[in-house]
Simulated assay, not measured.
Amino acid sequence: MTTQLPAELGASLDPAGPGTLERLHARLAAAAAEQHLLDVAYRTVDSPIGPLLLAATERGLVRVAFALEDHDAVLQALADRLGPRVLENPSRLDAAARQLDEYFAGSRHSFDVPLDFSLSRGFRLSVLEHLPQIPYGSTESYAQVALAAGSPKAVRAVGSACATNPLPVVVPCHRVVRSDGSFGGYLGGPDAKRTLLALEAA
């Protein structure tokens, strides 16, 4: 048995209609945002270091993820940590996307979007709060960051905080290097860290 749809409804759901699904998705995302039904909104943006996943809560940008982290796995982790109502909603992240474009173009040296640090706690949070204070085009050693974060002996913990930074690029852990000037590790890989430092040195 088949059910006959009203002609106007059938037309509105016609998959051949240009942009139908996109419009429906946009309406759903807008309604969810207006009614505060979203736990996490996300979008992806292209960049010189590969596609970046941007995710935000109502408090602010909560996650920036590299492709090698597996964006689907990152979204699942966000759903587990922050709530299951996760929806692609590019307009919610327009400001962050625009500022990243400006940064990669060399015209922006710092970010001023609201940030949600709920994925970090304790000493790691202290490290992340210090990182934006490292000037654009400059670097600090892990030891210098440990001192600035209030635990001079916690050099390895600084490395761990940088390696698990949920907001790379925006919270610039790429500006932290070893005392001998070598790069050290980076969540996005050595090539990404080299690209970011070269961009800021230009």
Rank of each mutant, 00 (worst) to 15 (best):
R43I: 06
L37M: 08
R43Q: 15
L38H: 04
G10L: 05
L5I: 06
L24M: 10
G19A: 14
L13S: 00
G17D: 07
T44V: 01
D46Y: 00
E22T: 12
A26G: 15
S12W: 11
I49N: 00
I49A: 00
Q4G: 07
R43V: 07
V45G: 01
T3K: 05
A32G: 11
A11D: 12
H36S: 10
L9Y: 14
A31P: 08
Q4H: 08
Q4S: 06
H36G: 11
L38D: 01
A11I: 06
T20G: 10
P48D: 04
L9F: 15
T44E: 05
I49V: 09
A16Y: 01
S12G: 06
P48L: 03
A16N: 12
L21R: 13
V40S: 02
G19H: 09
D39N: 09
G19W: 07
T44G: 01
A29T: 05
A26C: 11
R27L: 10
E8A: 15
V45E: 01
L13E: 00
G19V: 03
A29Q: 01
V45W: 02
H36Q: 12
A7Y: 09
T2F: 02
E8I: 11
R23F: 07
R23H: 13
T3W: 01
P6K: 11
A7F: 08
T3E: 06
P15F: 06
A33I: 13
M1N: 02
T3A: 06
A16E: 09
S12H: 09
G17I: 09
E34P: 06
L9R: 14
V40G: 01
D14Y: 03
L28M: 06
T44R: 08
A30V: 08
D46K: 04
V45D: 04
L24I: 07
A11Y: 11
L28Y: 05
S12Q: 13
R23K: 14
A33D: 13
S47T: 09
A7L: 03
D46F: 01
E34V: 02
E22R: 14
A30R: 10
M1L: 01
A41E: 02
A11N: 13
A31V: 04
Q35M: 11
L21D: 08
L21G: 06
Y42G: 00
Q4F: 04
A29L: 05
R43T: 15
L21Y: 08
V40M: 00
D39H: 08
S47E: 03
D14R: 02
E34I: 03
G10K: 10
V40Y: 02
A33N: 15
L28T: 05
D46V: 02
V45P: 00
H36R: 15
E8L: 13
T20M: 13
Q4R: 08
A33S: 15
A7Q: 13
A41L: 08
L5Q: 05
A41V: 02
Q35H: 12
T44F: 03
L13P: 01
I49W: 00
P48N: 03
G19M: 09
P18L: 10
G17T: 12
E22L: 04
I49M: 01
S12C: 08
S47Q: 06
T20V: 11
P18W: 03
L13N: 05
G17L: 13
Y42K: 00
P6W: 04
L37G: 12
H36V: 13
A32W: 15
G10M: 05
L5M: 12
E34K: 11
L24S: 09
D14I: 10
P15W: 04
